[in-house]
Structures are given as structure tokens and as C-alpha cells.
Write a protein that binds this DNA or RNA. Sequence first.
RNA 1: GCGCGCUUAGCUCAGCGGUAGAGCAUCACCUUGACAUGGUGGGGGUCAGUGGUUCGAUCCCACUAGCGCGCACCA
Length: 922
Amino acid sequence: MDKAFSPADIEPRIYRNWEASGYFAPSEHGPVYSIVIPPPNVTGTLHMGHAFQDTIMDALIRYHRMRGFDTLWQPGTDHAGIATQMVVERQLNAEGKKRVDIGRDAFVARVWQWKETSGGIIKNQMRRLGASVDWQRDMFTMDPALSQTVTEVFVRLYEQGLIYRGKRLVNWDPVLKTAVSDLEVVAEEESGSLWHLRYPLSDAEGFLVVATTRPETMLGDAAVAVHPDDERYRHLIGRKVRLPLAGRELPIIADAYVDPTFGSGCVKITPAHDFNDYEVGLRHKLPLINIMTLDASLNDNVPIAYRGLDRAAARARIVADLDALGLIERIEPHKLTVPRGDRSNAVLEPLLTDQWFVDIKPLAAPAIRAVEEGRVRFVPDNWSGVYFEWMHKIKDWCISRQLWWGHRIPAWYDPDGRWYVARSEAQARAVHGIDAAIPLRQDSDVLDTWFSSALWPFSTLGWPERTRALQTYYPTTVLVTGFDIIFFWVARMIMMGLKFTADVPFRAVYIHGLIRDQDGQKMSKTKGNVIDPLDIVDGISLEALLAKRTSGLMQPQMRTAIEKDTRRQFPQGIAAYGTDALRLCFARLATQSRDLRFDMARVEEYRNFCNKLWNAARYVLMNVEGQDVQMQGAEFSLADRWIQSRLAAMLARIESGFTDYRLDNVANALYEFTWHEFCDWYLELSKAVLQSESATAAGKLGARFTLISTLEKLLRALHPLAPFITEEIWQRVRLSAAAPGETIMRAAYPAAADVQTDAQAEPEMRWVMDFILGVRQIRGEMDIAPSRRLDVLLQNASPKDIEYLGRNLHYLSRLAGIEPPRVLAPGHTAPISAVALLGSLEILVPMAGLIEPTAELERLAKRLRKAELDLQKLDAKLSNGQFARNAPPDIVFKDQQRVAELRTEIGQLSAQTARVTKLKDQ
RNA sequence: GCGCGCUUAGCUCAGCGGUAGAGCAUCACCUUGACAUGGUGGGGGUCAGUGGUUCGAUCCCACUAGCGCGCACCA
């Protein structure tokens, strides 16, 4: 084995072998454990969030696979309607072409082509990350089978009256020229103005003042509303005002929606361009006057002077004209929330259009119940609150999009505009008896991408067919996703799953946090702070990283800042850390926090960890290779029994970590055991046996057996988080360890219950360790060279101390660097020494020629201060009668014991201080 | 406005009724035969603030402050 671990040489080779060997496929026996992947955008690339999420899922899958579950990790990609269409459209624009120029069919063909060329990128990234998905079952949301499922669901919902079509006010994106759902609207506070306009009364002198943030919509006004109880205006209700510029008459109506304390207490009502006004309009049967075109210019429903102006120009013109007529009372600065499209960032326009909707309430009710009854469990649980809040006030879902890329809506129109929803044109004709001579035209809209996503857990498993996969792996065990798509995706999957399979789509939803950069910023292309996970795996130079981050910027002015930041954060670029280090780092990051700060120092920490493991394996192999290592005839030492016991403790921690979806705890348990127990202690202790002339062959065999078997179990325990290095080492140790099987992937996960905990070894080992630590502390603080062997005296030794000492001299000698200690008889005066306390035992290191009395006095004073402080606190506690009366007896007992210990310690330290002081004064 | 988080060592974060933890950073020593991507030892915290519950609060409750997020918004 090389002296240092180098991941680049082994990872791709190992993955190819796994995949070729078919290890990722479900075993088809044992209890079921299944996960469907949240499908990434087929034409996208994996970002840190994906890599994080994939690590979690892969760890869960590998763990359960090793524990004998029939595991399916269902992979796939999403067609991502708007996002993908925008990408291809931009490509076209770069060639000087436009979507409309080449036409729908050519455009869609082009998107498919782009999907073919770029679709492989993400899958290769997943392979590099070690994702053990069942590639044989790879799916795409627009595969023929899945598209058919989408149609089937649409038709069934329509037939049951749960999908309807109608002219409604929707959020319209005038740049993308499509409707979007409420969820795709981001509301941001911006500075604007509040215009106070004068609307003259029709039948009298004077006017009403209305305030508006959008004066251009006045041409679509249908009324002016006041509060029914507003004394100022009560007499005007039912009368009329004349709409300036247009000249129409508007009724003055009363509606409780109006807040009499805001502005003048009069509101212009524009039902076709405002959601609240739309509701008011419905209540008062007001006309819907649509004044805008699909690109948000004024249409022919406005006076000729304003036609064709876009909304900004129209606003300027209307304000100027009103001003000229003296109809502007005042303009004041005003903060308002502006709705923008989450993709285009364009200001959205509430616009009356024909759209398809899902009547969502009937679907929401059972979905709410499923979570209430615990059939779907959110982890952490507080996210169920977020879910309920949204579900209880859910509004109908606008599912039609005026795009070209996506699932076409299965509705056909006859020349009279009647529509027929069916699985195909032929079925539409057959069912509705439409003659072949009558032309039918399919609806040109496509469905919201999230419509097909909502079906993902069952569409990928073959629904509506009752396939074996569907019957076996549905409901899936757990959904792993981020909180940002609870509404978009999680809720809708629950609704659709319950509707079409009569069961929940998953039993648990594990909601993880969002990966942010080291400054806590959300990672985005615009900010130029994204990191490609593979650049951490393979490394990247500063130049290449800069080029990546600054190419194709939407906002070129950001370039300088991005460059500066990148140079600051990664002055040397990024080193190649390997997949395992990255994955371990992700696991450790997976706390329940909602914001997870990614820090390269953490990856480095785990790169070092991998190297540590690698070298531990080298040491183990060095000692077992060429040896006949078996349990028979072996004699197990204290250290051997102790490390087994610690292994059992670690495995128990891991088991609860997986049960609780706390991979951070899993990672920590593995790290602490591997580094601080196996390497720091056990390997060193084993040297005391293996490198000793006097150790017995049986003892050496025990150490060798323990080394190899512990390492082998540790590798299996680590495998779900660090698949590559564990496989690589495992292949090298499996023969010596007599491990069955040909891959660690399919080896059994070590169970805590199968490893011996040892109630005797633990305290004795604790004594050995504390002894060693005591001597080392004196060494460290007194600057005694490690090479200098020490003579040590023991005072006040109990029979137990003597017993332990007798059994463990070899450990003490090796790890503390001492000669066999001399046990002083009671009352025997010791030479002046530095002291370490182990319970009541005093470990004495004679100072002569080694230790400065002043230094030792400082050391003693420090210990004494600490002990006295602790004692003081405990004394106060124990002398409080309430404590003794109310606290549980075991706590009181523990504290009393501690007090006794502290008293002894203080006595010893004081006596020692006196002795050293005396020496110093001589 | 309603709701939800967060505030613990210089940094990033665990912990959560009974003596404050990790990694990194820092200081000192160490080219020891697995590993300098290392070893050994040390220093470093009134657990945001105030009040309450309790024998006991970093942990539970209330309020306050700061930061962040979600939802809904008065034209």
C-alpha cells in the first residue's frame, strides 16, 4: 500500500466494477427499503445541494442494503419545463434565431437533442459521487410510459370533475408569456409611489380621491368602492363617478374589503388586473375589463391614444395626462411588494386568461389527514406545521403553461371551441362520436412540470399497471428532500399518491437543510459562489475555477466581485479531496439545522481522516500479512477486549443515528472511534504486544486477530458514508479477515448486538489510560523529552491499583515511556516528585535533575484552584437541605462521592505543594 | 401582520435538566519503525439579555434584543 491514500486512482475503477456486477439492483428478498430520487433537471448539472442529498440517500440505501433489506433506489431526471425551455431558447438566441421562427416542432426536437447531449452529465456526476442507484430502472419524466401516466391522471381527474378549464385571473409572466402558479411568484418589497387620483362625480360637483400604486390600470376600472360604514361616503353609495381619460361611468359601491383608514378610504376597483378587486368584482357583478395584451401592453379596450403602449410607457403617459387635467391630488413615496416570476424575474401581471386548474381542496383533505394520523411522518417534525399551514389555505392549482416543452394537455377542440378530454385524439372522437371529417386541434398548452413530478413515486414504478415493482416498493420508505419544495412537490405527491394509489407515497419525509457557502450565502450562479462537487473530488486550479464562475454571467457587472471573492476563498484553487472525504463531510454537516454552511476546511478534515484510516490499515496489514490469523488458540488482552467493547458502543450510536436520520451523529461516532479509540489507543497498545519479546504467541495472535477483525468491521461500518476507500481496503484485508463475499457493498453491516461489550475491560482500560495520561501530562508540562524514559514511584496504591499495575505494565511502559514503577510501602517517604493523581493513587515522577520546582508549583496551583472551585460548588449544593430532600438519591450519592474525591485530591495536592515549596526554599 | 427557526470557545457547529464538547485555528514540545494529511501536552466559554418554574437551568416557560426564513398583504 502507498504511504498516502490517493482517491483518484481507485474511485472510478471501483464504481465501474460495482455497476458492471449489478450490485445496485434490488436483492428481491428481505424487508423492503425504497427511495425515489428527487429527479434533477435532465439538462442541468449537479450542485452541492444535489451532492449532499445524494450522499444522504446513498448512505441510507447502502446501510439498509447491508442490513439485508431489499433496497431500491429509483433514479431519474426531470424535464423541468420552463428551465429547460429557457436554456435552449438562449442557445437559439445566441445563433440569432428565435423560438417562434423555427416553430414548435423544430423547437421541441431541438430540446430533445439538447437533452440527449447534456443528459449524461448529471448521471456521470452521480457515478463519481458513488450513488448506488439502480441504473437499470433509470427514468425520465417525458419517457413515453411516464407521459402516458400523466395523461391517464389528467383524464381521470377531469372525468371526476377535479380538473376544470376556465377564464380566471392568473399570475402572468409577460416575458415568458405563460401563466405560472402562485408558488412561482416571489414577492419582493420595492420602492414605488402612491398616486392619489381625482375621479369626478357624475351628477354633482366635486370628486372622489382614490389611491393607487398602479395608475395605468385605471383604464380597466369597473367601480369605486368605499366601506359600507364609512360616514363620509355613505351618501354616495349607488351614485357614479366618471372615469377620467376613458369617460366611462363607474358605480360607487360599498364593500367591507375597503379599509376606511387607509388613504382616502376610496378604492378603485379593477377586477381584471388585481386579485382582490377580482373578488370584489365577483361580489358586485362588475364587468371584467381586460386592458392588457399577453406582453403587458395596453389593448384595444382603452382609448386609442394609449393602445399599444407597454405598461411602463402607459403609466408615464396616463400620469402626465391626468396631471395636465389637474386630476392628481398628490404623489407620495410608497413601499410595495412587487410580484416577480421566480424564473424570469419579470414583474408579473394578474391577467385574465383561459387556463386549466386542479380543484385542490378534495385532494388536500385526505393529504392533511395522512400527516395528522402519522401515515406520513416529517423529520424533523416541525416541518409538518409548515405543511399544514399551507394545505389548510391551499388554492386551486393552475396547471397549464403556455410553453412548448412539456406534457401536452390531452384536450382537443372542435372548430366551435368545444373541448374533449381523452387519452388520445382517437379516443376523443370515439367517446364523443366526432366524425373524422371534423378537424380537432389539440390544446397547445403543456402542464406545469410539477404535475408530472407529483406522480413520480408511483409513475416510476409502473402505475397504472399493477407491476411487481409497484406492489413491492410502493409506498416508498422515505423521501429525502429540502424544505424549499415542501409545497411544490412533497404536498402534491402526497395528494396525488393518495388519490391514485389509495396509499401514501412515502412513510417518512426527511427534510434536510440548505447547503450555503462558507459565508452563509446561498449558492447561486449569479452570486458566482457555486462549487461543482466534482471540483472538490478532483480538484481545480484557481484559473479554471475563475473561468467557470465568471462565464455566461447574467449580470456581467458582478465579474470583479466574483473574481475577488473567489481569489480570497481559494487562493490556490481547490485540492483534490476525493469523493469519500466529501461525503463524510456532507454527513457531518447533516444536522437538523436549516442552514448548513459548507466549509472546505471540513473536507480537508475528512481527507485527513481517510488518510488516517488508510495508514491504520497499512499497519494492520503489516502485522497480519503472511501470518495465520485465526481465533483458535488466541488469547485476548485487556486492549483486545476493550476495543471490541468500544466498537459495540460505536455501532449502537450508529444504529440510533440512522434511525433518527442523524447522519451527523453517525459520522461523529465513526470519526471518534476510528481516530481516538482505534488509532490513538488500540493500535498503540497492540504494539506493546506485537513488538514485545516477552509476549506469548497466543497473545500476539489475539492482537493480530483483533486488529484485523476490528478493522474489517470498522470498514463495513464506514462503508455507507465512505464507499470507495472502504471497498479498496476491504479487498486487501478480506482474505486475512476471512470475510465472506466479493464486495463490501453486499457484506453484512456489523450489528452492535453481535459485538461483545465488556463491563470489566472498560474500567480497567480507563485506569490504564488515565495512568498514561497522568504521566504524559507531567511530561508535556515539564518539557520532558518523549525519548527520556522515566522512573516512577507509586504511593497510596490500593490492592486494585496493584492488580491493574501487575497486569498492564507493558502498556504503561510503552505508552507512558516509564520503567516499571516502584510501589512504595505505606508510610514510606518518597523523594520529592511531580505528582499525577489517579483516584487516591499518587503517581510520582522524581524531580531530581528533571523538573524545576517552580514549574511544578505552578502546575500544582492550577490543579488545586480547579479542585477547590469544584468542591466549593458541590459543597454549596450538598449543604442545601432542599437538594438532599428532592434530588434523586443516585445524583446525591454521586455528588457526595465526588466531594470525597475532591477532598482527597486537595489534601494530596496541598501536601505536595508544601513539600515542593520546602525543597525550593532550601 | 401571522408563523417558524437561530444566537454555545477566535471560526464552523454538536449537546440540552445534574461537574460545558468536537473539528479547525492558536501556543509548546516531538523527523518514535501506520500516518507530519502525523504524535503529545497546554490555553481559550458569566452557553444573547431579563424574569419565572425547579433542590438545581446552557437545556423547560415568558418576555426583550439581534439575525434569518416562510406565508399573507391596504388600494
